[in-house]
C-alpha cells in the first residue's frame, strides 16, 4: 500500500517562514530575540568573554564599586561581579532551556499516549497530573529539589518534574482534538498503525502549542532556578548562578548592592526577553489570533 496518499499538516516550511517573518517584523519581539541571541552567545563563549575568573577571591579588593578593572564591581569575597553574572548566564540558560525541553519531550509523549489510548492509563496519568498541578510550581520545585538534594543537575531534574504535568495536559488535550480530525480518522481507517498515526499525524500537529508553551516556561524556569539557588537548593557555591549571586549579596545589600543589582537585572531582562518572544510565538502560531 502506498504511504503518500494521506496529507500531513506539520509546521510546513512555508509556515515556518511566515512565523519567522512575523517575529522579526515586530520590533519588540526583535529586541527580545536579540537579547536571547546575545545571551546564547555569552553562554557559549563564556570562558573567552568573562574578563576574570568567577571563582578567584581577593579579600584585599572586596566590595568594590563598579569601575576600573571590575566593570560591575566585586562581591564580599573580592570576586568579579561581571564575570560571575556572565558565568551565571550559562547556568540559567542551561536550566531555563533544559528543564522545559526535558519536560516538553517527556510530557508530549506521555500526554499523547494518554489522549490517544485513553482507558486506565489515561485515568491514572491524569489523576497524577491533577495531584501535581495542585501545587504551585515553585513549591513543587522546592519539594523535589529538597528531596533530591541541592546541585545543578538536581535543579534541572526538579524543575523538569515540576513542569512535566503541564505538558502532559496540553499534549493530551491536543491529542483528543486531533483524534477527531478527518485526516487522523482517515489515517486510522486506512489501517495505519497507532505508532505511525501518533508520530506522523498527531505529534507534528501538536508541536506548535508545545513549543509556545516551552518558550513561555523558559522564562519561568529561569526564575525558578534563581529562586531555588537563592534558597540554597540550586547551584552550589562557589559556582555562580544569578540566584546565588543575589543570595550571597543579601548581607551587604546596603553597602555593596552591585551583585544584587546586576544579577537581578540579568534575571529581569532575560525573563522579559523570553516572555516577549514566547508571546509573539504564540500569536504567530495560534490560528485563532490570525486575522
Amino acid at each position: 500500500m502506498a504511504d503518500t496518499t494521506i496529507p500531513q499538516i506539520p509546521l510546513a516550511q512555508s509556515q515556518m517562514r511566515r512565523v519567522i517573518c512575523e517575529l522579526i517584523s515586530n520590533k519588540v519581539t526583535l529586541v527580545g530575540l536579540i537579547i536571547i541571541g546575545a545571551m546564547l552567545l555569552l553562554a557559549l563563549l563564556t570562558p573567552w568573554i568573562a574578563p576574570h575568573s568567577p571563582y578567584v577571591q581577593n579579600a584585599f579588593n572586596a566590595n568594590q564599586a563598579p569601575g576600573g578593572t571590575h566593570l560591575w564591581g566585586t562581591d564580599h569575597f573580592g570576586r568579579d561581579v561581571l564575570s560571575r553574572v556572565i558565568w551565571g548566564t550559562r547556568v540559567s540558560l542551561l536550566v531555563g532551556i533544559g528543564a522545559p525541553l526535558l519536560a516538553g519531550i517527556a510530557g508530549t509523549f506521555v500526554g499523547t499516549f494518554a489522549g490517544y489510548y485513553g482507558g486506565w492509563f489515561d485515568r491514572i496519568v491524569m489523576r497524577l497530573v491533577d495531584l501535581l498541578m495542585s501545587f504551585p510550581t515553585l513549591l513543587l520545585g522546592v519539594m523535589i529539589a529538597a528531596a533530591l538534594g541541592p546541585g545543578f543537575s538536581n535543579v534541572i531534574a526538579a524543575l523538569s518534574i515540576a513542569l512535566f504535568p503541564r505538558f502532559i495536559r496540553l499534549a493530551r488535550a491536543s491529542t483528543l482534538t486531533l483524534c477527531n480530525e478527518p485526516y487522523v480518522e482517515a489515517a486510522i481507517a486506512a489501517g495505519r498503525s497507532s505508532s505511525r498515526v501518533i508520530t506522523k499525524h498527531i505529534i507534528p500537529n501538536l508541536i506548535g502549542p508545545i513549543i509556545v508553551m516551552a518558550t513561555l516556561w523558559i522564562a519561568t524556569a529561569i526564575r525558578l532556578e534563581a529562586s531555588l539557588s537563592f534558597l540554597g537548593l540550586g547551584t552550589q557555591p562557589p559556582s555562580p548562578s544569578w540566584g546565588n549571586i543575589i543570595r550571597d549579596g543579601m548581607n551587604n545589600i546596603l553597602g555593596t548592592p552591585y551583585p544584587i543589582i546586576f544579577a537581578g537585572l540579568a534575571i529581569t531582562v532575560s525573563v522579559l526577553a523570553f516572555n516577549m518572544v514566547g508571546d509573539a510565538l504564540r500569536d504567530a502560531l495560534d490560528p485563532e489570533t490570525q486575522v
Binding site: A59, A62, N63, H76, F77, N251, N252, L254, G255, T256
Partner: peptide
C-alpha cells in the same frame, strides 16, 4: 552585627 566578610566595613561607610 553580621559576622560576614565586608559587612562591618560597609556599615562604617554607610
Amino acid at each position: 552585627g553580621a559576622r560576614s566578610p565586608g559587612w562591618l566595613q560597609d556599615m562604617e561607610r554607610q
